[in-house]
Design a protein around this nucleic acid. Structure first.
Length: 757
DNA sequence: GTTCTAGAAC
DNA sequence: GTTCTAGAAC
């Protein structure tokens, strides 16, 4: 929405249906901040009714709040009810404000208790005068009584927020509400956060999706019993400073500390998150319009390649021009606000002060990679301590504009122990400030190119961290695993976003330095560049064999998405278990063609498979066989083969179970045929044997496969083109080659085995 | 992975 | 003129 319509909207008498938004949340959950954010950018007139200040700045009564709300509604204004409202009884009179002309919404700020307490404890000059240590006990007591709202109480819409990203989405939703717009009714967000969700599945789900956000509009969760509402959850990471300890001490004896139960559930831990400042727009005086275009363009390009990871543009001030420009452009481009959002705060204290956990932060560095200059660079070097300077020097001594370098933080760095930041990525952007080195003298053609390169380098660096960390828990690096078991934070080996760095890992992981500026005239496609520049560098940190890390286009994510959230794709899925999902191939290349997809995060393809996946391979094979047998039972003329593509086009390890008739209109070209009928197709039985004895599977590359002639899979006769081949195979009844008849590579119907073989 | 299409092959 | 492939775009 343009800001320009602000005045007209306010001046107009005609409005859509007014709404009353009842905020719910403990002190420190951010209710007032929520209102401020919305009221600042909304094109609707809002009134905030706050019981703490309603009596000319002092606390008033509930009746005064009601009266004030009624008056505002009469004026056609929308109303925020800004009080805790945690119990049903406390809010029911406000719900009654609703009617045919007025909708009542609930926004639940159900943030970690620990976070609310730490904010309340620190707060000075809070309107309700709830500050200092007393806050901890109050918050705890309140949270124990909380009753999450239900639609049946009379709410037209409920938005439940479990983390900062949910909150930001809700702010965006209400801010973007034009005078005549309405938000869809229903329950949005997670109903029973932290409740007993099947952990076996949850730990492999995309973590950002665990607490459903306002984006999942179709998901209207019905009311459920209230017995679970006192179950506490905490998405905060453990051991993050002394505030929670202080809070704990405030509790009276015998009082159950709510926060005490927290921390066990790592499945809801924050997704990998990169916080980055706007590059070059501060001291380097780069044009804000152009910079915001580039940020949004690059974010759009990368955000979907990063799995569940998030990108967050951070600035110190609410008034930041660059944040509002980027916000507007990002929403125009429909960028998923769960994966990318803007955030106001000190980038060096996002976790401790704002409750946003970012495992990676970017620094708008200078070419010397040294502290100084003021701004973000000075702040980050100062917060990172001597350790950051030393670690930086180890990775690079200087950096040209357009480049980035990943620096793993030693565990002694305050940024790691206090904020949970595992890596700093230094980025050098183009400079338009004549007072600084390498000034481009307003050459924005070059400037824009360099800034694009800078963001590409930054996001590639982050992406490499995400990839290497995603693979760690299931990964094969024994010395890392032993390091990890020392870390009491992570007893179960579930994917985490901050892992205690071992020095060894630091060295392997640290090098991500895009050298694009040396060779680029016009920058090439980032995906290619990513794999090129990473080969032999970061991505190999987990791969002893030096294999390249593949990058996946957006169209290649479908299987991954289904594997991670099969319940969202019910119609596509034939079977779901903790380990695999079975589905029909969308474009079957034979009469029967199903895929058995692994549900392990970070297991993209056969190249990622190691010995520790052997059990999974066996499970996949067994499930595949089961389906083949089922199909054979229905049609005994079929023969099946089970195997993997050496270099699949679709991300997420999947086993093809395919009947050998290849009778399908979807089989159209050489690649289709050869991918199932050359050594490129790796039989499941062989893969299991290779992984068991040689640690990994043998792979054949795609290029050599494509150039191969077209041969019948039965009689091995060659054919000039696909149509001719297809007409041949419909009639060929020759016996299969002997290699395929061995070791159970082909699966025949039980009674026919002796005849065909 | 598919779709689209220019132009090569027939 | 039609069939088919292969590369680009998605």
């Amino acid at each position: 929405m343009d800001m320009d319509i602000d005045e007209t909207a306010k001046g107009e008498e005609k409005h859509g249906k007014p709404i009353v938004v009842i905020l719910m949340g403990a002190p420190g959950s951010g209710k007032s901040t929520f209102c401020e954010h919305v009221m600042r950018s909304s094109t609707r007139p809002w009134v905030r009714v706050c019981q703490d200040t309603i009596k000319s700045g002092k606390a008033g009564t509930k009746a005064q709040c009601i009266e004030s709300a009624v008056n505002a509604l009469k004026d056609g204004k929308c109303v925020f009810i800004d009080r805790c409202n945690l119990e049903k009884e406390q809010r029911n009179e406000f719900v009654k404000l609703g009617g045919p002309q007025v909708d009542v919404h609930a926004v639940v700020l159900d943030l970690p208790a620990k976070l609310c307490i730490s904010r309340s404890v620190k707060r000075t000059g809070h309107e309700g005068n709830l500050q200092g240590g007393r806050a901890a006990a109050v918050v705890n007591r309140m949270l124990q009584k909380k009753e999450l709202p239900k639609l049946s109480e009379g709410f037209a819409r409920i938005t439940s927020c479990q983390n900062e990203s949910d909150v930001q989405s809700a702010i965006d939703a209400y801010s973007g509400l034009g005078p005549l717009d309405t938000l869809p009714n229903g329950y949005f967000g997670q109903k029973n956060p932290g409740a007993k969700i099947q952990l076996g599945i949850m730990k492999f789900l995309k973590k950002t999706d665990a607490p459903a956000s306002s984006e999942s509009i179709s998901k209207c969760i019905p009311d459920s019993n209230a017995s679970q509402i006192t179950e506490e959850k905490d998405t905060c990471s453990k051991g993050t400073g002394s505030l929670s300890e202080n809070a704990g001490r405030e509790l009276k004896e015998g009082e159950e500390p709510v926060v005490g139960s927290a921390g066990g559930d790592v499945s809801l831990k924050d997704a990998p998150t990169l916080a980055f400042p706007s590059i070059s727009t501060a001291d380097f005086q780069f044009d804000l319009e152009k910079a915001s275009d580039i940020i949004v363009e690059k974010v759009a390009k990368f955000v979907n390649k990063l799995g569940n990871a998030r990108l967050v543009l951070v600035d110190l001030s609410h008034k930041s021009k660059i944040l509002s420009l980027v916000r507007t452009k990002a929403s125009e481009k429909n960028i998923d606000s769960n994966k990318f959002f803007t955030f106001v705060g000190d980038i060096t204290r996002l976790h401790s002060e704002r409750g946003l956990h970012c495992n990676v932060i970017a620094n708008a560095a200078n070419w010397r990679l040294k502290p100084g200059g003021g701004g973000v660079n000075a702040a980050i070097f100062s917060a990172g301590g001597q350790a950051l300077e030393v670690a930086t020097k180890e990775q690079a001594k200087s950096l040209l504009p357009g480049n980035a370098v990943v620096v793993p933080l030693p565990s002694i760095s305050p940024l790691l122990c206090r904020e949970g930041v595992t890596h700093v990525i230094h980025v050098v952007g183009p400079n338009m400030n004549p007072q600084r080195p390498n000034c481009l003298n307003n050459d924005y053609i070059k400037g824009c190119r360099v800034l694009q390169e800078a963001y590409t380098s930054l996001f590639e660096g982050f992406s490499s961290i995400v990839r290497s960390q995603a693979k760690l828990p299931k990964g094969s690096i024994e010395n890392l695993q032993s390091k990890m078991t020392e870390s009491q934070d992570h007893p179960d080996g579930v994917p985490k976003d901050h892992i205690t760095n071992s020095d060894q890992k630091n060295k392997r992981e640290g090098l991500h330095k895009s050298e694009r500026s040396k060779r680029s005239k016009r920058y090439r496609d980032e995906t290619e560049d990513a794999s090129d520049s990473n080969a032999g560098k970061v991505n190999l940190s987990n791969k002893s064999d030096g294999s390249r890390t593949k990058s996946w286009g957006s169209w290649a994510q479908a299987l991954y998405n289904i594997a991670m959230q099969p319940e969202k794709h019910r119609d596509a899925v034939l079977e779901i278990s903790d380990d695999v999902v079975v589905l029909n191939d969308l474009y079957p290349k034979a009469q029967r063609h199903v895929l058995v997809v692994a549900r392990y995060e970070g297991l993209d393809c056969l190249a990622d498979v190691r010995k520790e996946h052997l059990q999974l391979l066996r499970t996949m094979n067994a499930v595949g066989l089961k389906w083949a047998e089922k199909f054979l039972h229905d049609d005994s003329s079929l023969v099946f083969r089970l195997g993997y593509h050496s270099e699949p086009s679709m991300r997420q390890l999947h086993l093809h179970v395919i009947s050998q008739d290849f009778d399908s209109t979807h089989l159209k070209n050489k690649k289709h045929w050869n991918s199932f009928n050359t050594a490129f197709f790796r039989d499941s039985v062989d893969v299991m044997e290779e992984v068991s004895s040689d640690e990994k599977a043998i792979l054949k590359d795609e290029d050599s496969m494509l150039s191969m002639e077209l041969r019948c899979h039965r009689c091995r006769s060659a054919h000039p083109n696909i149509p001719r081949l297809k007409s041949h195979i419909t009639n060929c009844r020759a016996s299969f080659p002997s290699t395929l008849l061995q070791k159970g590579r082909l699966v025949f119907p039980p009674c026919n085995v002796s005849i065909d073989a």
